[in-house]
Design a protein around this nucleic acid. Structure first.
Length: 505
RNA sequence: CGGGGCGUAGCUCAGCUUGGUAGAGCGCUGCGUUCGGGACGCAGAGGUCACAGGUUCAAAUCCUGCCGCCCCGACCA
């Protein structure tokens, strides 16, 4: 069949499942994508394009999000948005363009973003008297407006989110993971007290953990960023970090305690209960379509994408097996489609004029969690054949015959099981590649080899982190409290925190 | 932005060394036979060889420039 035209060279890293070993006459090895293990990058790019998530745009570093990819984004969006609303936030919209004079008010912030800001210098045919930045993020413009809206402690807190695009002039781009323009949400809040702001920062970080793990089925570690990894202008930055199959970490969401830095730069002041004028405490937090990149890499396999049900634009696809010119299967499939749709399932009926095998491979590559086959044999027995995308072919429970009357309830159960199984698989990977080390040489070796999340007691010193980076190109991903006394595994100084180190995307 | 690689049909690529006016497989269109893991027959369509200059009687092929993509670094969601 098609095994010959697939590159099988390369030992295959320890990170990927050896799923390509197929035997017998039916080997579901996709023609369209290379195997995942030897070259994650090649696999990833192929998946993004072949599964029709994105296309490259005629602008360097920009992607077109195609309908199926946008469907993924919408799922993520609605999961987040729902949680933002539940935690008291409202959506709003701030302008894309930011006057240069505004941007430069918070010194650290400007300095941090300067290298990646895109500028508008001309309007129509006239040069502008002041350059306009295309937002790389919106703290500046939001802060400016909050200053106008806040007079009294009674005006606080302000809890606003916006769903927008931002532009950052990146040197090196990859679909979803790093593009010049990307979609995200940015939450911006202002509070009367530091403790209230800090609570907000943690609350939203927990929302990200919830969505990453329970919706995208991507297990993450949460913690605080080191000084060098902190958001420009923030006092504290917290992140969730996922681990990719090649052993690199991916920051999938951030939440910043901005202290009073932006309030002072943009003059967000209020009178408190004692009529004393105070600066507000602000926060910001964001998750981007990069999360989709994490989902793709974490769950995909050699057959293509695997989408966790809660993220799947299509939860189940019905493939009628048409035989001998009879329309029996087609009729039954249409009925089934109507039933499942009515039951609330995101279901698709594939009536394309293709052979079943083509359809199977196609939907597998697109990662649809459930495939429902309906042919003469099934109909004779009053069942449909249901196949799970999260299991390997021939694996226990991968395929089952489900009585038609029970199909919608059975699908719901299976989707729940698939979601749980995919998360469990990903979590097993994360845990098995999270390595506590206490030996310095071992630490450097593992981090250099991208062995995973390398967990050590750490001194938290910038010099130490710089040294690790120079030696291994890895940095701390995030930090959490250390219990007890310990020495830094990287340098031998007294440790202050526990830290995950890894090379990052 | 440095180092390396690559741009030829929708996709994967051959042709380039040694210039002579473009090919394969898959995909696509039509008809027919098929349809429970990537079918087969017949008939077709599709490329200013990334782009711009230059050398030459003649450039996909040689030279220069430029744009884009991929990989490795540096920088970052």
């Amino acid at each position: 069949m098609s095994a010959e035209n697939v590159v099988r060279e390369g030992a295959g890293s320890a990170f990927c499942e050896p799923e390509r070993v197929m035997t017998g006459d039916e080997a579901p090895i996709p023609k369209e994508v290379p195997p995942k293990s030897p070259d994650l990058s090649a696999w990833y790019n192929a998946i993004c394009y072949k599964a029709e998530l994105v296309s490259l745009a005629p602008v360097r570093g920009c992607i077109v999000l195609r309908p199926y990819g946008y469907g993924l984004w919408e799922r993520l969006q609605s999961a987040l948005d729902q949680r933002f609303k539940e935690t008291g936030h409202e959506n709003a919209y701030f302008p894309l363009l930011i006057p240069e004079s505004l941007l430069t008010r918070e010194a650290e912030h400007v300095e941090g973003f300067a290298p990646e800001v895109a500028w508008v210098t001309q309007g129509g045919n006239e040069p502008l008297t002041e350059r306009l930045a295309i937002r790389p993020t919106s703290e500046v413009i939001v802060g400016t407006m909050y200053a106008q809206w806040v007079q009294s402690y009674r005006d606080l807190p302000i809890l606003i989110n916006q769903w927008v695009n931002v532009v950052r002039w990146e040197k090196r781009t990859r679909p979803f993971l790093r593009t010049l323009e990307f979609l995200w949400q940015e939450g911006h809040t202002a509070h009367a007290t530091e403790s209230e702001a800090n609570e907000e920062v943690q609350r939203m970080l927990d929302v990200y953990v919830d969505v990453a793990e329970n919706i995208a089925a991507v297990p993450v570690y949460k913690g605080e960023k080191s000084a060098s990894e902190r958001f420009a202008g923030a006092n504290h930055t917290f992140s969730i970090e996922a681990l990719m199959p090649d052993g690199r970490a991916l920051q999938a969401g951030t939440s910043h305690a901005l202290g009073q830095n932006f309030a002072k730069a943009y003059d967000i002041k209020f009178a408190d209960e004692n009529q004393a004028v105070q600066y507000a405490w602000t926060t910001s937090w964001g998750m981007s379509w990069r999360m989709l990149g994490a989902l793709i890499m974490v769950h995909g396999d050699d057959r293509g994408l695997r989408i966790p049900p809660k993220m799947a634009p299509i939860e189940a696809v019905i493939v009628p097996i048409v035989k001998g010119g009879s329309d029996e299967a087609t009729v039954a499939a249409r009925e089934l489609y109507a039933t499942l749709k009515k039951a609330g399932l995101r279901v698709k009926l594939d009536e394309r004029d293709l052979r079943p095998g083509n359809k199977f491979a196609d939907w597998e590559m697109r990662g649809v969690p459930l495939r429902i086959e309906l042919g003469a044999n099934d109909i004779a027995q009053g069942v449909a054949t249901v196949v799970r995308r999260d299991k390997l072919k021939g694996e226990e429970g991968a395929k089952s015959a489900v009585p038609l009357a029970e199909l919608s309830s059975r699908c719901s159960e299976l989707l729940i099981a698939i979601q749980a199984n995919m998360f469990a698989q990903a979590r097993t990977f994360l845990h098995s590649h999270t390595i506590e080390v206490s030996d310095r040489a071992e630490f450097y070796k593992l981090v250099r080899e991208r062995a995973g999340m390398i967990d050590i007691p750490w001194c938290e010193r910038g010099e130490c982190e710089a040294h690790v980076k120079a030696e291994t190109s890895a940095t701390s991903r995030n930090l959490r409290p250390l219990d007890g006394a310990a020495v830094c595994v990287a340098c031998g100084e007294p440790a202050r925190v526990r830290a995950y180190f890894a090379q990052a995307y």
